[in-house]
């Protein structure tokens, strides 16, 4: 299991614990935790509705991949440590990270 912090659109932070041996993505865990993540495309890095900003732990998690950057580029706004949650695996690299939701809030 790994533990990390999620900050919602109102700035509220909550610690989330998730299994790191089931091949889950951060998007799937956020949805399962009832966060308002649309994930329109279902996890193909094709819609950017699961946009998150890595506030802490960005060095461990690494930079956005090319398919993520292609989508982020289309958004009105993104950040140096922006990621698409569907492309972030739940792995020990997430331990202690702080993730801020940036996708549309609905």
């Amino acid at each position: 299991m790994v533990k990390f912090i999620v900050e919602d659109h109102d700035g509220n932070r909550q610690e989330i614990e998730a299994p790191d041996d089931m091949g889950l993505s951060l998007m799937e865990v956020l949805k399962a935790s009832e966060y308002p993540v649309l994930a329109t495309c279902g996890g193909m890095a094709l819609c950017a509705t699961c946009h998150v900003e890595v506030i802490e732990g960005e060095d461990e998690l690494g930079e956005a991949t090319d398919p993520e950057l292609d989508q982020l580029e289309n958004l009105p706004e993104y950040f140096p440590t922006s990621r698409l949650a569907c492309q972030v695996r739940i792995s020990p690299l997430l331990e202690g990270a702080v993730i801020r939701l940036r996708g549309e809030d609905n």
Partner: peptide, 10 residues
Amino acid sequence: IPLFGLSPKL
């Protein structure tokens, strides 16, 4: 003309 993609809303 701002072109920043589409996002679904109910």
